[in-house]
Amino acid sequence: MFWLFFLPVMALLFAAWHFGLRRNQVRKASLGLSLTSYLAFGFLYAPILVVAVMSFNNSRFRLEWVGFTTKWYAKIFGDESVTGGLEGAQLLAATQNTLVLAIISTAIATVIGSLLGYGLHRYRFPGSQLTAWLMYIPVVTPDIVMAISLLLLYQVLRNVAPFFEPGMPAMVIAHVTFQIAFVAIVVRSRLATLDPALEEAARDLYASPLETVRQVVLPLALPGVMAGALLAFTLSIDDFVISFFTSGPDSQTLPILIYASVKRGITPDINALSTIIVLLTMVGVFLSQILQRNQK
């Protein structure tokens, strides 16, 4: 039953992709290469698609297709008449936590990351090469390693400041630590596309260093800053591992809530919630890409 829904959607996706290839006059791929690509894409996106499809399944527990419904979405958005699945209050709190965490950490990381990106772009100082290199470590470090190291660090710092107790403040700091790198990398690559003479021109035209940044560098780097911020926001929203290790009893986020409830069995409203998160993330990444592409 499920495959009736799944197959046409996949077919449609493939067709759209293939058509896109043709239209853009990309070098024609051989059949073997096309097939391999389709399979690769299939394995990548099939799980997400399954979750999305199942979120419309009118069954409380079973994996088999019973019928189409949108009630799980209704429930997430506050329809209390729908029975089964998570508790409404828990869901609301988790959503709130997720958003608060994402917004605050993104705001902080965007400021610090942009400054870091600009600093590395503009100045050569002892250790600047090392800093540029170190920037990639949070990007490539596995989340679990990052989470454990933060946990250990917090345990030490807790003796000095209660600020580092598991909970929202600790989570914000944890998220900022990995977000900074992403923002800085995006901002720096944007700055690298700008003509260095622009800053000199501003200085030549009587702008102080601060005015140069305000009037010329920042407006031109803004697409990069926004793209970095969106990327950081998306990373925060769907982070589970690091949040899990640093959260307290009152700071459960959506990924943590989903994980906790999945242990008691996957409920359809979790499928719906996951689909929404995937969609939000996709929108974020998409916007970030658009902003990075619109660079003249």
């Binding site: 003509d195 003479a197 622009l198 021109a201 501003a202 200085r203 030549d204 031109l220």
Partner: peptide
């Protein structure tokens, strides 16, 4: 004197006009 305090102005090779 930093560049912004010198009474000279430059016409740059690739113009360096502010694109925004």
């Amino acid at each position: 004197l930093p560049p912004n305090q010198r009474s000279v102005n430059t016409v740059f090779q690739n113009y360096a006009l502010f694109p925004h």
